[in-house]
């Protein structure tokens, strides 16, 4: 992957293209599982992104210890630590 950078999702290293959002990193980290969800809803449903543009908050995760971050609005930076809440 040219121009790739490395971040960690739930402790596992993931390489993503430059200018990818943290949301893309989460979805790529789940590439091997068919269910590419990001979080669990209040009643326990798996949820993935809906709007992917900062409106719906379905893509929330913890980025560098900041909980409830909208991962669709944040570009990956080398070494970024991304943790999902599920």
């Amino acid at each position: 992957m040219p121009d790739a950078i490395s971040v960690t999702v739930n402790g596992t290293a993931v390489r993503v293209p430059l200018n990818s959002t943290a949301l893309v990193a989460i979805l790529m980290s789940r590439a091997s599982s068919p269910a590419r969800f990001v979080r669990r809803s209040l009643s326990g449903e798996p949820r993935g992104p809906l709007c992917a543009m900062g409106i719906c908050f379905e893509c929330r995760a913890t980025i560098n210890n900041q909980r409830h971050s909208r991962t669709c609005l944040i570009l990956c930076a080398p070494g970024m630590d991304i943790r999902t809440d599920d």
Partner: peptide, 27 residues
Amino acid sequence: RFLPFPGWTLPNVIGAGGLQALVKSGF
């Protein structure tokens, strides 16, 4: 605008513009 229907909360049901945005973001 999203209109709810049975199953609309399943992962991979996503906005049309949303999926485009995701692909533009590297997916």
